[in-house]
Design a protein around this nucleic acid. Structure first.
Lengths: 248, 248
DNA sequence: CGTCCTCTTTAACATAAGCTAATGCCGGCA
DNA sequence: TGCCGGCATTAGCTTATGTTAAAGAGGACG
């Protein structure tokens, strides 16, 4: 029965990440997987999972697929504030704030697990290590957001896009979603522009530049990074950034 | 004996904020205050409290004074990633990540309380409400960071600076640090530039513009906002933003 | 009372990035 | 097969913001 095998079945990505954050006992892992299987759900591409202002009464874990968090100004300007990748958490402890300060939309079809507040609290109370892993996840997310602030505030377009690509690659790696030096990049250029604070036109120009230098190949929603270190260099990717993401 | 009076003495700002996040019982408040008084420390202006890469083995609460979090790129470009104001925490649960991903530097003289890891964990274990308030604090900080991403990514210089001023004002208010429509703003223009992702020169231009429209007066490190609603309007300050900061 | 220092302000010029609009490309679908 | 709609790409022009440099302004201090 796969879903309880060693690979973690559909919950694999989540289990891998949490285990990297805090070594989970068999029992912790089983409890988490169980809670996941209880609340399995799916969403199509381009669906709003939750919107700014909505009440939050559950925590969601992404099993597969891409989503993004975003905020929109009154006049329509939109900023993608982060991507949510397989194995990551949608609302970790944001649920403490009772309402969402941003929206979450799916990019691709998504499989996720929804754990209701009461169930979640029970799980945390029973498994200290899981609770710690969850807090770690939140802290990590916070560190990513800080780096995005630096990216938007102090990096030029070229570095900025390069940095985003390095980051995505490094975040997909520990959950087994990179294949050699390639990974999926299922977003439109408009999305990339909204994530990097650029206009679509300028984002496109920047992409051309990145291609011209031979640092990346981007085709058919697949990103290929010939020389990751070179790209990181060009991006001024901080050496220690996302270290905690790597599986030891 | 002031320090145990109803005003909370030196721990006042922290107690007020935490109490707003989760209503604290007398006992919770006393325990928190006690922990604070145990670990009282001071730092001068312009001091590095902790630097990127340093190990984290305690949580610090700011009792008075301003600090900022910042990251610097190899070539010296610096981004201030947030300000830390009285009543706020320095590292809430970042201590779970064991090393700092950014640096913290004081702006003014600062009084703070340092709670060592073991002591902190003991406190959290004994007082569920305090633990929740701490998590709330982290979540709130995360929401602020997301808004900063929007600010840097999608707002023009004028709105961006206006937004920062509104935010600071709203964050100082609940801890009693605004006086009518004025508050302290003890940072240099270089700092403001590094916080808004602008060059000093352009920041200065923007400040002139803000003054010219009569939206703000900034003189002697004091910010005066004639019409907060007008400023928020100009800044596209989201209506619900920082709602959780307000004392009910 | 002058000198140094840090911070602010201004000017003149350079450029990265935005905007508008047209064109190309491709896959879905009638 | 041919039209439509969403994306990607390119061109041409505009503008916000960066850069360099120099000059005030005020406080600390010998």
């Amino acid at each position: 029965m796969r879903s309880h095998g060693t690979d973690g079945g559909i919950a694999q990505a989540v289990l891998r990440r949490f285990n990297a954050l805090r070594p989970l006992s068999e029992e912790d892992a089983a409890a988490l997987e169980h809670a996941i299987l209880e609340g399995l759900l799916r969403a199509g591409p381009g669906e709003d999972l939750i919107a700014e202002g909505d009440p939050v009464d559950s925590v969601r874990l992404v099993l597969s697929g891409w989503l993004y968090r975003h905020k929109t100004l009154e006049d329509g300007r939109r900023q993608i504030v982060n991507f949510i990748l397989p194995g990551e958490t949608c609302d970790a402890h944001a649920y403490l704030l009772s309402t969402m300060d941003h929206s979450i939309t799916t990019v691709t079809p998504v499989a996720y697990a929804e754990i209701k507040r009461a169930r979640f609290e029970q799980l945390m109370a029973a498994h200290r290590t899981l609770a710690e892993a969850f807090m770690c996840e939140t802290a990590l997310n916070s560190a990513i957001q800080r780096e995005w602030i630096v990216n938007l505030g102090r990096r030029a377009a070229f570095e900025r896009v390069a940095h985003l690509f390095c980051e995505i690659f490094e975040r997909l790696r520990p959950v087994g979603l990179v294949d050699g030096n390639s990974c999926a990049l299922p977003v439109t250029q408009t999305d990339l522009a909204d994530a990097t604070g650029l206009s679509v036109v300028h984002l496109n120009r920047t992409l051309q530049e990145l291609r011209a230098t031979g640092l990346i190949i981007l085709k058919d929603r697949t990103l290929t990074i010939g020389d990751l270190d070179a790209l990181k260099n060009a991006a001024m990717f901080p050496p220690g950034y996302l270290r905690r993401y790597q599986v030891k």
